[in-house]
């Protein structure tokens, strides 16, 4: 019985919401870091052949970075909706904490994977640009196709967060 009480003390509503929000920012951020890093390696190769393509490959490298931003955005939405920024945090019940946690799941998971795969597509786009610099837009659009699912996940997360009414 004491164990359960201890658990209840540790896992209060705000804590669970924080874990969700933190994981959303962290996982999407890790994914973006991997993706951007992946493209960066390929981009450095392209630039070593032709430094004038720096601007183009930099654009490609920026693409998988958005998931990290979506993660941060989700984190902010949780903080805002939960009243953590306005000092209203104690009103979050344990159930609502879990709701926030669940709401963070889509961007947490999809953000990570889509950033990684978008990075791979962008890196391939880098070699496309190396051979045919005029086809940059096509490389960008192909890469953006992967991002679609991060956007959908972000929507799912944000709309769920906004449906939780605290207080």
């Amino acid at each position: 019985m004491e164990f359960v009480q201890a658990l209840e003390k540790i896992f209060t509503g705000p804590v669970i919401a924080f874990i969700g929000a933190a994981l959303a920012a962290a996982m999407a951020g890790i994914g973006s870091a991997r993706g951007v890093g992946l493209v960066g390696e390929a981009a450095a190769g392209v630039v070593s052949e032709d430094p004038s393509k720096f601007g183009k490959v930099l654009l490609l490298q920026a693409l998988p970075g958005t998931q990290g931003i979506y993660g941060l955005l989700t984190w902010f939405m949780v903080m805002n909706q939960g009243g953590f920024l306005s000092g209203n945090a104690s009103a979050v019940t344990t159930a609502q904490g879990w709701q926030f946690f669940a709401a963070c799941l889509p961007i947490m998971i999809v953000g990570y994977y889509s950033a990684y795969y978008q990075g791979r597509v962008s890196a391939a786009g880098g070699s496309l640009v190396a051979k045919r610099p005029e086809e940059l837009t096509k490389a960008i659009v192909m890469s953006a196709m992967v991002e679609t699912y991060a956007i959908l996940a972000l929507l799912a997360s944000v709309l769920t967060i906004l449906s939780i009414k605290v207080g």
């Binding site: 955005l73 972000l154 929507l155």
Partner: peptide, 13 residues
């Protein structure tokens, strides 16, 4: 719906 998502992203960031 990406219109909503990107518009939210701009505003929230």
């Amino acid at each position: 719906t990406r219109i909503l998502a990107l518009s939210l992203a701009t505003a929230v960031i």
